[in-house]
Simulated assay, not measured.
Amino acid sequence: MRTNMEHGSDAAGGNRPEGATDTPSAGIGASEFGVRPGEITRALPERPDAGLYFIGRLRTPWTDRASCPKNGRESEEVCTVELDPDLVPALDGLEGTTHLWLLYWMDRAPRDLLVQVPRQYGRGRGTFALRSPARPNPIAMSAVRLVGMEGNRLSVIGLDCLDGTPLLDIKPYFASTDCHPEAVVGWHCERRESFVK
């Protein structure tokens, strides 16, 4: 484990580093993006424990992390899910569905950050207390609104990723089980309360 006190650029997202691959085992480190003061990194394992199949790509208007929304609720842009044509039969039954969970692989995010200092919060927090794409397994998820289906293409609203991001899975969103209005994130509530005072 190492702490880097050099000031750097955003750890999350970003332009594709030279030499990066589309394979989940590719270990992208924070040093390629810069590490902020107070952030802690760790060396990546030599080999992965499991393999994944990318089932398609996400087409969005964002090509750099500066223009990409921080979360899917910040944009009303219609984006496209391009599913591999061979998987179209797996969409059977989605007709009439209004919302989906999309799980995707943030292939351009660093994977070695344990403590991050998000620019908007200004203090370090553990990676597992954040929704940053920079994490040991850069799996992201968004609850999106399904606005159209044609062949292997789904039109959705609510994405927050760069164009070409690999897709891992599609699941229906069930309001009866997926919505927890009482849920809280402790540090986020504390931050909000400090603004009110």
Score class of each variant (00 low, 15 high):
69 P>T: 03
64 D>Y: 02
39 E>R: 13
56 G>L: 00
38 G>D: 04
88 V>C: 05
38 G>K: 06
46 E>P: 09
152 N>C: 02
42 R>I: 08
43 A>L: 10
88 V>A: 12
141 M>R: 15
127 T>Q: 15
33 F>R: 15
75 S>F: 01
103 L>E: 06
125 R>G: 01
55 I>V: 11
111 R>A: 06
58 L>F: 03
60 T>L: 06
149 M>A: 15
116 Q>S: 11
80 T>S: 10
91 L>K: 04
154 L>S: 03
50 A>V: 12
139 I>G: 01
34 G>P: 12
80 T>V: 07
42 R>N: 07
38 G>H: 12
130 L>S: 04
57 R>W: 13
93 G>L: 06
125 R>F: 14
107 D>I: 06
49 D>Q: 15
46 E>V: 14
49 D>P: 10
61 P>S: 04
110 P>G: 11
135 R>A: 07
32 E>G: 15
153 R>F: 01
128 F>P: 05
36 R>N: 15
63 T>I: 06
129 A>W: 06
45 P>R: 06
152 N>K: 00
83 L>T: 00
91 L>A: 02
62 W>S: 01
150 E>K: 10
157 I>R: 08
133 P>C: 00
129 A>E: 12
70 K>C: 00
128 F>W: 04
90 A>W: 00
109 A>G: 05
79 C>P: 05
80 T>G: 00
66 A>S: 09
69 P>G: 00
74 E>S: 03
107 D>W: 15
123 R>T: 08
58 L>N: 11
123 R>L: 05
67 S>Q: 14
86 D>L: 14
48 P>C: 11
91 L>H: 02
35 V>K: 10
61 P>T: 14
72 G>H: 01
50 A>M: 06
109 A>N: 07
123 R>E: 13
86 D>W: 05
84 D>T: 01
138 P>I: 09
97 T>F: 06
109 A>V: 05
41 T>G: 03
62 W>G: 00
48 P>W: 15
103 L>F: 14
140 A>W: 01
37 P>N: 12
127 T>P: 00
47 R>A: 13
138 P>V: 03
118 P>K: 14
101 W>Y: 10
38 G>V: 07
72 G>Y: 00
77 E>G: 00
137 N>P: 01
92 D>L: 07
138 P>D: 04
127 T>M: 09
128 F>G: 03
53 Y>P: 04
155 S>I: 01
